[in-house]
Nucleic acid binder design. Structure first.
Lengths: 208, 208
DNA sequence: GGAATTTTAATGACTTTTGAGTCATTATCT
DNA sequence: AGATAATGACTCAAAAGTCATTAAAATTCC
């Protein structure tokens, strides 16, 4: 019955265990279990620290959650934007390059975790949805709109309903991310093949 | 301080409050908040009953959760299957009919709730993911594969990478469902237009 | 440069809160 | 009148959040 024995025994590491590590551990846990089902103790364990340490950097579980999502929300689409504005060649090659880059960067990455979190927790965190929509989604739509506009001007893309709905171009990407998150065990996607097929159907679907 | 006052005051309704009502209320709450964050009290309130009543029909919160998802998992794709096998006309009209039917039936329906639940809770309920994959996803893929095969045989669809990846055809549908769940407030989808564009790009993307 | 001292980081036992699950009591049905 | 359905106050376990205590780092002083 040696129980009442207050105080800690072995505070070890120093220097590391920075907020960044907590954010990373938090992302990994939240992406799997969501906000409510994730225990701070799990995050602490994954980060190799004690639960109490989290409270030195974040006010509450929810505060940590917000910080986690915000920290991964911005993600640079700038490279793609630049690709589009500077690209000299034909539209099909440009689209191929942009889509390839997006797959490489997103499928199976931290970003897919953020997307799952957003879908799951969106209703209780409209603020986060708002930021994501502004920072990521609508930027993506803008880039795709540019590609289409450019293609129409060059006479490579036909104008029509499809050209007015840029979300169609990225739909297969979103689906691949979610498929990978959800059905990887049952029925894994071969990303190479899928990407090839994606580019193929989009190029034929839009071409003049 | 009139607190300790055991026993109930007003058991009201009889006859209604059947398991079905609890399942419906459960679906609505679970779809918004997920398993962990949903309180049985919320479900009870939505169903217009007391918390204890739930335990007459379900053993535990998790048992109710499983029952909720299972109850909405099967959903008939049979009508679409039948459409495909019996359809006499050209592929574009068939595809138009099938896609229109899917949008009408799925976007904004109970099914979108189930899809959100599956994405959110999948990692902790691989059994449910398994059932959904077998009962819904792979059936959907089969139907689309039939359409494509039929189209190739009739000389209306070109063979190629896109024809080997039927998931591409339904990707915009999935995206519309999730977009509606997540970004309705920021940026609602006009389903009529979106569907038109979807059919347009797919038909051009696949046509011979 | 290094011992002594102050400041800051980290710990985990403890407290508090929250919500799942129970059950004695009461209404309604047969 | 007996059986069944429903209730909500209550119990209890689990996890969020606190804090006295200790380790390590930074600073001061000689």
């Amino acid at each position: 019955m040696t129980k009442i024995e207050t105080g800690p025994q072995k505070p070890k590491r120093r220097k590391a265990a920075r907020p960044g590590e907590i954010l990373q551990a938090g992302l990994e846990e939240f992406a799997i279990s969501g906000l409510a089902a994730t225990r701070l103790e799990d995050i602490a364990q994954r980060a190799g620290i004690a639960k109490g340490t989290i409270y030195r950097y974040f006010d509450s579980k929810e505060d940590l959650f917000m910080a986690v999502v915000r920290s991964r929300l911005v993600l640079s689409l700038d490279q793609f934007e630049e690709m589009v504005t500077n690209y000299p060649g034909p539209t099909d090659a440009l689209l191929r390059q942009v889509l390839t880059g997006i797959y490489k960067q997103f499928v199976g990455s931290d970003i897919s975790g953020v997307i799952r979190i957003l879908i799951s927790e969106g209703p209780r965190f409209p603020g986060l949805v708002d930021i994501y929509h502004k920072e990521v989604t609508s930027k993506g739509v803008t880039i795709l709109t540019h590609i289409i506009k450019r293609g129409i001007e060059r006479g490579e893309i036909r104008d029509g309903p499809a050209a007015r709905e840029p979300r169609l171009i990225m739909a297969p990407t979103i689906m691949a991310i979610l498929w990978d998150l959800t059905f990887k065990a049952q029925d894994p996607i071969d990303i190479e093949e899928y990407l090839t097929a994606h580019i193929d159907i989009i190029l034929h679907g839009l071409s003049a």
